[in-house]
C-alpha cells in the first residue's frame, strides 16, 4: 500500500486538511480520517454517517418477535400439557418471552450491522494507520494516491506533519 497522510493535533487543522484535499480534487470516499475519538462537532466527523442500522434493529426485533411467537406457541401446542387451568397457548405469559426475544433480536441485529459496516473484526494489514493516533493526533490521508506529490502541499498545514507510506 502506498499512502500519504498528515497528522494533526487539532481538529480544526484536520478539517482544513480534508477541505484542502477536496479542493485538490480528491473524492470524498478516498479521504481517510482516523482519530482517537469521534468528532461529532466537525464536518469531517459526519462523513459517511448515514447507516441502515436503525432499520436493521427493527428487522432484528421483528425476527426476534416472530421467533418468540413461534417458540412459545408452537412448543405449547406440540405437547399440550395443562397447567393451572390456563389455556394451552397462554398469551399473557408468552408476551413476556416474545418481548425479551424482540429486544434481543434488535440488539443483536444492531451489533451485527455495526461489525459488518465498520469492518470489525478486521485486519489492519495493508491499511493506513499510525499508532500516534492513539496519542490524540488526527490522521488525514489518502490511500494509494495517483499523484502523491500533488497532495502533500494540501496536507502540509501549519501544525501538521506530513508522512508517506511506501511499500
Amino acid at each position: 500500500m502506498k499512502a500519504v497522510y498528515g497528522l494533526y493535533a487539532e481538529p480544526e487543522l484536520a478539517q482544513q486538511a480534508v477541505d484542502n484535499l477536496r479542493a485538490a480534487g480528491v473524492a470524498d470516499a478516498d479521504i481517510t480520517v482516523i482519530s482517537s475519538e469521534p468528532f461529532e462537532h466537525f464536518e469531517f466527523g459526519h462523513r459517511d454517517a448515514k447507516t441502515v442500522m436503525p432499520w436493521m434493529a427493527v428487522v432484528g426485533g421483528l425476527v426476534g418477535m416472530t421467533t418468540g411467537y413461534l417458540l412459545t406457541s408452537v412448543t405449547q401446542m406440540a405437547w399440550p400439557l395443562k397447567t393451572s387451568g390456563m389455556p394451552i397457548v397462554s398469551w399473557w405469559p408468552n408476551l413476556i418471552v416474545i418481548f425479551e426475544l424482540t429486544m434481543l433480536g434488535a440488539i443483536v441485529a444492531s451489533v451485527i450491522t455495526l461489525l459488518v459496516s465498520a469492518k470489525l473484526p478486521g485486519s489492519r494489514a495493508g491499511k493506513l494507520y499510525d499508532p500516534e493516533v492513539s496519542d490524540g493526533y488526527i490522521l488525514v490521508g489518502v490511500e494509494n494516491p495517483s499523484d502523491p506529490a500533488r497532495l502533500e502541499p494540501a496536507l502540509a498545514i501549519n501544525g501538521g506533519r506530513v508522512k508517506s507510506v511506501e511499500s
Binding site: K82, T83, S84
Partner: peptide, 17 residues
C-alpha cells in the same frame, strides 16, 4: 386443584394436570 398454582410455575412441566 383444577387451577393448581403449583403447576404453571414449574419451568419443566414436572407439575401438570
Amino acid at each position: 386443584c383444577d387451577a393448581a398454582p403449583c403447576e404453571a410455575v414449574c419451568p419443566t412441566y414436572a407439575s401438570h394436570q
